[in-house]
Design a protein around this nucleic acid. Structure first.
Lengths: 134, 134
DNA sequence: CGCGTTACGTACCGATCGGTACGTGGAGAA
DNA sequence: TTCTCCACGTACCGATCGGTACGTAACGCG
């Protein structure tokens, strides 16, 4: 199947509305939501982002920022300075996403996180036969 | 980097809280959110799900359902009948996710969907040089 | 004139994802 | 008996993802 970005308009069937797919695709890449969150307090430089977020490679950060820019969630400001200085900041759209749905997700996880772990353990105990996907 | 499911406890750094990562991982697989949405009205059988959702393969549905079951979001009920009858339904936890964060995401997309598309087109116009990631 | 800093780009690689195609087991229908 | 239905399981495959390693262009500093 083609990537969803090519289907955002041609939603034939799907459940409620395929717009949901377009939205969940924003979370599809591992680090994109994290970068978004890291940008919440204010504009940041690449270095600062890499430091704030632990464990993501330089390349992946670049890709994430490019995607987020392309989606209009993040803006890039480059300053003509000695060592190049580039800052990334949330756009209005980006803020609306972070403060809306992403906050909702965070709140949900905070409330049901333990429940989620319990459920996983329970599942692991009750159906241990199959070779454990993932 | 290891899969996030192995890191849900050992969150060293990350931004706000790594729980967010555990949550976004629930959306990591393409069809999982769609299946969740399809289950919202009530219990469904595999066939019904495949029919309601268009374009996902049999195998992927199975995998999605297994994951969702393993996460405690969906329950499996099998009936001892002539042609095997198996129904899948949202658990309480699943309902809380769908009616909470996922609804928020859906609402956001409904409000900002056009804005998102506009931003994408704008980005495509202003920075056409790189070989178009994705 | 090297050296360090910053923000990238490029090459390559193993793991995973989603897809197609096909097989299986048991019960009812033809 | 053979066919069909249903819910899977298995094998294989191409595309993508994220990671490591390394190169580059421009500038300031000692």
């Amino acid at each position: 199947m083609a990537r969803m970005s090519e289907l955002t308009d041609s939603c034939v069937e799907l459940v409620a509305d395929c717009r949901l797919r377009a939205a969940t695709d924003l979370f599809a890449h591992t680090w994109d939501p994290v970068v978004l969150m890291a940008l919440r307090p204010g504009p940041r430089r690449r270095r600062e982002l890499r430091a704030a977020i632990g464990g993501l490679s330089d390349k992946v950060l670049t890709e994430a920022l490019r995607r987020l820019c392309a989606h209009g969630l993040v803006e890039r400001h480059s300053f003509a300075q000695a060592p190049p200085r580039v800052e990334y900041a949330l756009t209005r759209l980006g803020h609306s996403l972070v403060d809306g749905p992403m906050k909702a997700l965070g709140d949900w996880t905070r409330k049901h996180g333990d429940e989620l772990l319990d459920a996983q353990e329970h599942a692991a105990r009750t159906l241990p036969a199959p070779p454990r996907p993932r």
